[in-house]
C-alpha cells in the first residue's frame, strides 16, 4: 500500500504478562488522515492503540517489542523519553474523563501549565483555540470557571478532546471515544473528527462499523491479536479481501 511513512509500526508485539495480545503488526498511517481500527472485543485493538503512545507499558506486567516510527524515529529507542513523546501523540479515552475539581479552563490549560507555561495570555489563547477546534467554545465560553465534570457527557468528551489538542500533538489516538455517548453527541464527535484531520493525524478504535465507514480514510480489521486486513475504507467495506473480514462486517461472527 502506498502510504507515506509519517507514522508506522514494524513487527509490533504487545504482551500482558505471558499473553501475547498484539502479534507482529505492521501498519502505516499517512499524515492528516483518519484511520479506523475495528474488530470484536478482546482482539487487541485498544492494546495496539496504547502501544502507539507508550501507555501500554504503564500497566504492571505489560511489555512491548517491535518498532514504532514517528517520522523515521523509533519511539521505543532508548533515548526517547515516553513523557516527551506523549506530548506529540495525544489520546482520548472511552469514558469522558475530565480531571475532577478542575474547571473547564484548567482542564484544557493543565497540559501547558504543568509543562511550565505560565503566561496567562498564551494560556487563554491556547484554551480558546483548543475549545474552538473541539467545537465546544460556543457552549462553554461563559462557564470557563465551572467544573469540567458539570458538563454533559458529550460536552465532557469534547472537553477531553480539547485538553488533548491543547498541547498540539501530531497524532491523536481515540479509544472508542463515542461508546459512552448518545447518538447526537456521537454525531457531533464524528463531524469533529473529519474536521480535525486537517490539523492532526487521527487513529480511532471503534466498535461501531458504520462509524468507521463514515469517518475514516483507511480501516484495519483486527482479530485475536492479528491484523487481518488493512486498506482504504471504501474498499474494505465493499470488497474485503479476506474471508474473515467479510464475515465480520456482514455480522456473521464477532
Amino acid at each position: 500500500m502506498e502510504i507515506s511513512s509519517f507514522f508506522s509500526t514494524r513487527d509490533l508485539n504487545a504482551w500482558f504478562g505471558k499473553t501475547l495480545a498484539v502479534r507482529a503488526v505492521n501498519m502505516s498511517f499517512a499524515e492528516n488522515t483518519v484511520s479506523a481500527i475495528i474488530g470484536p472485543s478482546g482482539c487487541g485493538k485498544s492494546t495496539f492503540l496504547r502501544c502507539l503512545n507508550r501507555l501500554h507499558e504503564e500497566v504492571p506486567g505489560a511489555r512491548v517489542n517491535g518498532t514504532v516510527l514517528l517520522e523515521n524515529k523509533n519511539i521505543y529507542s532508548k533515548d526517547v523519553d515516553p513523557v516527551e513523546l506523549r506530548r506529540q501523540i495525544g489520546m482520548v479515552f472511552q469514558k469522558p474523563n475530565p480531571f475532577p475539581a478542575f474547571s473547564v479552563f484548567d482542564n484544557v490549560a493543565v497540559g501547558l501549565k504543568l509543562a511550565g507555561i505560565r503566561k496567562s495570555t498564551i494560556l487563554k489563547d491556547a484554551v480558546e483555540r483548543s475549545l474552538r477546534m473541539a467545537a465546544l467554545w460556543d457552549e462553554v465560553k461563559d462557564k470557563l470557571n465551572d467544573a469540567g465534570t458539570s458538563l454533559s457527557g458529550g460536552q465532557q468528551q469534547r472537553l477531553c478532546i480539547a485538553r488533548a489538542l491543547a498541547v498540539e500533538p501530531r497524532v491523536l489516538l481515540m479509544d472508542e471515544p463515542t461508546s459512552a455517548l448518545d447518538p447526537i453527541s456521537t454525531a457531533k464527535i464524528e463531524e469533529l473528527v473529519s474536521e480535525l484531520k486537517k490539523a492532526v493525524t487521527i487513529i480511532i478504535v471503534t466498535h461501531n462499523m458504520q462509524q468507521a465507514a463514515r469517518i475514516s480514510d483507511q480501516t484495519a480489521f483486527f482479530l485475536l491479536g492479528d491484523l487481518i486486513e488493512y486498506g482504504a475504507t471504501s474498499q474494505l467495506f465493499t470488497a474485503p479481501k479476506d474471508n474473515r473480514t467479510e464475515r465480520y462486517i456482514t455480522g456473521r461472527f464477532g
Binding site: 503512545n53 506529540q88 495525544g90 469514558k95 474523563n97 480531571f99 497540559g111 509543562a115 477531553c160
Partner: peptide
C-alpha cells in the same frame, strides 16, 4: 483512566 489521561498529556 484519570491517571492515564494525565500521562497521555505528556506529564
Amino acid at each position: 483512566h484519570i491517571r492515564e489521561a494525565g500521562l497521555a498529556l505528556g506529564l
